[in-house]
Simulated assay, not measured.
Amino acid sequence: MIESVDLRRLQVLRLVHRHGTVTAAADVLHLTPSAVSHQLRQLARETGVALLEPDGRRVRLTAAGRALVTHADALHANWERARAELAAYADGSAESLHMCGFPSAVARLLAPAAARLRATDTRLTVHVAEEETAAGLDRLLAGETDIAVVVLDGSTLPLDDAKFGRRPVLAEPFDLIVPAGHPLAERDEAVLGDVADEPWVLAAAGSCDLYELAVAACSAAGFTPRVAHHARDYAAVSALVACGLGVALIPRTAAVPALHDVARLPLRDAPTRHVLACVRLGGDRRPAIARGLAALEEAGRELARLPERPDRR
């Protein structure tokens, strides 16, 4: 019979389930692998069942472990709702809100949202951190941030993942950028097939969402991009394109430095990335988090009102 379970150990189990290794979960929790293993052994003793079994060099949850994670997700969601309800009874003292997101989300969504919150609520202290999608979700699950702005990705954020609540913030098309002297430079628009034979500038596989999105879009257009150079930062990408070293995709809201002589074209078959604001399930009822989500949604609406025809540069 289970008499008591430490909720912190359930959190450890959730992270091992997410990452498949004790070492990866330890990295997220800022613990040693031996400390994580100890927590899991204690949890197995508390529950009286085996929770993990080996799976090659990784581990996987037993059927009992998976059942426990399902209940743990519900428990943590209820705890987030309880925190939100208790916050409504607070005495009005200062609050803090931690938000994170991938680099261009920091520039175009999180920074404006933080500024809006600072202007409208002087009691709220907002902290912003730059994190790619997977790391942002890890920070969210570990309790190190309250809102993570991420790109919808079925492998990083499965649609049936019960750990997170999510709000759509922005559906953002990508534009094609080519060197200023390129034959396409004077056209009003293009399709991906127009650059099927060109060298490409892309992020390295697995480094961010752009690689998978671009490869999938090119595949749908009937070709595989020939990657000549790897870059993730959009200023670096546009610099390589400006020097005639390839073509690239860039989000509609991403700025190109003025000194980079490139042409920017809308695509009739443009890939689109879907940007979400994620919270721990139930956390959106906490007043500070609710205000943060509202500010991000307003920032997203402002970006969506930008002209469909991007600047030529």
Rank of each mutant, 00 (worst) to 15 (best):
H182S: 08
D188P: 07
I250F: 03
A254E: 04
R252P: 00
A220R: 15
D284H: 13
R187S: 14
L267A: 09
C218H: 04
R264K: 06
E198F: 05
G292K: 05
L296E: 02
E297T: 11
A221M: 09
D269R: 12
V247C: 11
D188Q: 15
R291L: 13
E186S: 15
P257R: 05
H230K: 01
D194F: 11
P257H: 03
A228D: 06
V227S: 02
C218N: 01
V262L: 12
A204E: 14
R268I: 11
H230W: 04
A185H: 09
H274Q: 11
V275M: 05
A263R: 09
C278W: 06
P266W: 09
A235L: 00
T253A: 14
P266A: 08
G222R: 05
D284G: 02
S207P: 00
A270D: 05
G193D: 13
L303W: 09
R280W: 02
V241C: 14
R301A: 15
A254F: 05
P199R: 03
G282H: 00
W200P: 03
V195K: 03
A235M: 01
A263G: 01
R252E: 13
P183G: 07
G283W: 01
I289Y: 04
Y234C: 04
D209M: 09
T253S: 14
G283S: 10
A217Y: 08
A196G: 10
V201A: 10
V262C: 10
R285G: 13
H274W: 09
L192Q: 09
C208K: 03
L276V: 12
Y211Q: 06
L184S: 09
Y234H: 14
A204Q: 10
A196L: 09
D284A: 13
D269Y: 12
L192E: 05
D188S: 15
A295L: 08
A231R: 04
E298A: 15
A214P: 01
G222W: 06
S207V: 10
P251V: 02
G206Q: 03
L192W: 13
A203Q: 04
L192F: 13
R268W: 11
W200S: 01
V215P: 02
L213R: 05
L293W: 04
A236S: 13
V279M: 00
P199I: 14
C208W: 01
I289A: 00
E302W: 04
L259C: 11
G246I: 10
D233E: 13
H230L: 10
E298W: 08
P199K: 06
L265Y: 12
R301K: 05
T253M: 08
P183V: 12
D269H: 13
P251S: 14
P287F: 08
C243W: 00
L303S: 07
R264D: 08
A190I: 10
E186A: 15
A235F: 04
R268F: 10
G244W: 06
A248I: 11
V247D: 07
A254L: 00
A290C: 05
V237I: 15
G282Y: 00
E189I: 00
A236N: 07
V195P: 05
A263W: 08
I289H: 03
P287A: 08
V256H: 07
D188N: 13
F223N: 02
A190E: 12
C278Y: 05
L293H: 04
H274V: 14
A270I: 13
R252W: 06
V195T: 09
V191G: 14
D209V: 15
S238Y: 06
